[in-house]
Write a protein that binds this DNA or RNA. Sequence first.
DNA 1: CGAAGAATAT
DNA 2: TATATTCTTC
Length: 560
Amino acid sequence: MVCTANDLQEWKDFPKGLKVLLLDGDINSASEIRAKLEAMDYNVSTFYDEKEALSAISSRPEDFHIAIVEVSTSRILGGFKFLENAKDLPIIMTSNNHCLNTTMKCIALGAVEFLSKPLCEDKIKNIWQHVVHKAFNAGASVKSEPLKPIKESVVSMLDLEKDNRQRETIMSIDLEKVSRLTDNDPEKSPGSDKYPAPSTPLLKQGASLPDDGDCQEQTNYSTEKESGEHDGQPKSVETTCGNLSSESTSLQREPDKTLVTEEEDFANRSKGENENENAVSSHPQNIKIQSKIDGSRKSLKKVGALSNSCETKANRKKMKVDWTPELHKKFVKALEQLGIDQAIPSRILELMKVEGLTRHNVASHLQKYRMHKRHILPKEEDRKWLNQRDPMQRSYCRQRPIMSLPPYHSNHTLAQAPVYSMWGQPRCQMHGMQIWSPPDYPLWQPTESLHWKPFPGMHADAWGCPVLPPPQTPFFSHPQPQNMPALDYKFHLPQRSFEHYPAEDIIDKVVKEALTNPWLPLPLGLKPPSTDSVVTELTMQGISSIPPCTKGSNPSRHGH
DNA sequence: CGAAGAATAT
DNA sequence: TATATTCTTC
């Protein structure tokens, strides 16, 4: 009756010949659906009465791989009855009536999917996925344990995230996973050739009930949670979303761009991994994936290779965190709040409140951040040191340091294809996106594929020109000429570099002082927020209409 | 043991 | 290069 993974492996032209039980009280509807199914080379047995259908599956279980059951308002009980009594079969419920309650009940009773009528070809051509899914999940009874954290994160995710985009992202990822399932193993699923890009049924389900999506999801999750795992029931909703939730939710509060990026990222990576797997060996793919996963994640207890291929997906490596400007901003804000001495990954993570983000993620980012800091700070310290010893220089050193204009500023090539500082402003907008660094760190911004270099051929290490800011440069002199983007974050390393830098505690002290007494002039080497960053802040808070003239003006006539 | 940070891998 | 993972130290 149930299609096993082995069956699938030997099923040469899957899903052709898929045995579909069609239960629909409406003869017209039934024949219509049947025709469509048969057009796909599915093998359809039509029933108009659930009792007949049930007796058929009990007497000839091998004759059915999947069932499509109609639940009309008039005979809704029949549908449910079938659903409750044919649990071994993946059952797709269908109805004219799109009532959410009905849908939920169907799913709660174990239906793998609810499809609203009419059943167009797109909706039914991929029903075989449920067969595959079920086949792969057969015997996966140990699921609850690995799923537990997943479910928790899903629940919290739902608490936090009301945005539809969230759901869409998850669904899309789900789609990716489902197609991976099929693409992954051509031998098991030759049908993937025929239906190379199956739409995810669950995606449709979600999409078909957009207004109730949240509710529905929550219902599903909570159902799942309290009832434990329905063994063998496809858990695409819970499992898939859940598995991914820890990843996708890491950026759930981020705008579309972030989510999309993440999603694509995931898709690309998955694809690549699959390709690799296939390239290495086409036979024991499941095992290979499993062992691969086992190597990097917690090992799975289950032995069945096929059932593990699902687990594999479930425990798939965390996807890369995309440190978008928004995410980085949170990071920086956390740093700001914590101060330099408290800025440890766990606390940062705490403050960032980004679901799914791990301490490791933060640590890694922090490492990078600090590494960058090291590039800059010594120079600051140098100056500080220098100026502490030379009161005469303090006066101008309180001024914002600027960098000499590299010779490229008139270079059209560079001007029209601006690559901004990877540590400074993000590309594409010199105004409005800059992140306000905490005072104890120089401004820093993760790159997004565009990497700035001071000028062609010049390595970042070479930053720092023996140019000192003009003494009359006002304190708040941030707006920079547009043709020198990002450069304003670079401090100039005086040619005469000192071997000795002040001790860290001295730096900390100075920094703390600056924090405690913000009204005082900033200690040497530290800079006030730029206009850009202020604009950014405002923009982030919804104040977007800042007169552009506030930036790009000449520093020398700006601050007073 | 676990966190932090550095080093190394991908 | 950016991020993940592993190693080392505490």
